[in-house]
């Protein structure tokens, strides 16, 4: 069932682990012979290194802004970078005002979306991770659940929205339901794959030491699966944040997705562009936080 996603998740994890922990491990004093030489050289090289490292990023941003400005020149409806920046300054000067349910500050909209994601994701984790463990551990259960997972996983999250509206008869729980259903699959699958992938050596240790089921879980299963689980969580949060914007466009209320739709109706294109940046930045921050958490739990 999980072959495709598994590969995807694993690749994702591996590339991440190559980039991030490598950076974390590097400062440890492993290269002792090289240090006496490089230590005095480093302070001089440091500012130059920083500039050189930042240069491609800055250049990329500049090119991006240039292209954006160029396009906005030819298309008068699309605001350019400067106009958008001015609008953003104004918008963020008072992010937490509240003039009724349909007119709230950008801060409230972001927080409302984050809250939905947190609730939907939290419920998905509470159900998906234990389910993943059980699927990984018991073949029978895996054979039972796998076909259903394979069937439902490729469904676009928004297709679940009508079901949510029908069952919950309210927009907010329906949006949370959509987050839940889209966030649960990566966690189930990655956790199950993690359990399947536990090296036989560790299970042999458990057998030879005759450990109890509880000890096997706390000392072997859980720590061994943790990196896989973290990958699942990261994928889930990513999907949840992708989906919330679309879901809120349809359900309305307070939230960054609804805000985008509202500003489209107001024909306030600057705000739409700002919203795109906000969604991107918040998504990036969520990802980074989880990468930090994952690094904390990696034991290599």
């Amino acid at each position: 069932m999980s072959a495709v996603t598994f590969v995807k998740g694993r690749e994702d994890m591996e590339t991440k682990e190559q980039t991030t922990p490598a950076a974390a491990v590097a400062p440890r004093p492993q290269l002792k012979p090289a240090q006496p030489e490089s230590a005095p050289a480093r302070p001089r090289a440091w500012p130059g290194m920083a500039v050189r490292a930042a240069l491609p990023t800055l250049l990329g941003l500049a090119v991006f802004m240039g292209i954006w400005a160029l396009i906005s020149q030819t298309s008068p409806q699309l605001p350019g970078p400067l106009k958008t920046w001015a609008s953003a300054q104004e918008l963020f000067s008072d992010p937490f005002y509240n003039k009724g349910p349909n007119d709230q500050g950008i801060g409230w909209n972001i927080l409302a979306s984050l809250q939905r994601v947190a609730i939907g994701f939290g419920m998905a984790a509470a159900l998906g991770i234990p389910l993943g463990f059980m699927i990984g551990r018991f073949k029978f259960l895996s054979a039972m659940v796998s076909p259903i997972v394979s069937l439902l996983r490729p469904v676009s999250p928004l297709a679940w929205l009508p079901i949510g509206l029908l069952v919950f008869k309210a927009a907010n729980p329906a949006a949370i339901w959509v987050i839940f259903i889209s966030a649960i699959w990566p966690m189930i699958i990655n956790t199950a794959v993690g359990v399947n992938r536990i090296p036989q050596d560790y299970m042999n240790v458990a057998k030879v030491l005759n450990l109890s089921e509880w000890k096997i879980f706390t000392k072997i299963l859980f720590p061994a699966v943790l990196p896989y689980m973290m990958t699942g969580i990261r994928l889930s949060i990513g999907v949840a944040w992708l989906v919330i914007v679309a879901a809120e466009m349809l359900t309305g209320g307070v939230g960054i997705g609804f805000w985008v739709w509202d500003e489209w109706n107001n024909l306030n294109v600057e705000h739409i562009i700002i919203a795109i940046f906000i969604v991107g930045i918040v998504g990036l921050l969520l990802e980074q936080v989880l990468v930090l958490v994952a690094k904390r739990f990696s034991y290599e």
Partner: peptide, 20 residues
């Protein structure tokens, strides 16, 4: 009939749990 504490095993690849 199975592994037991009266028979201690040392594996070829040490098999230590890396998180402990």
């Amino acid at each position: 009939a199975g592994p037991g504490p009266e028979r201690g095993v040392v594996f070829q690849n040490h098999s230590l749990l890396p998180w402990l």
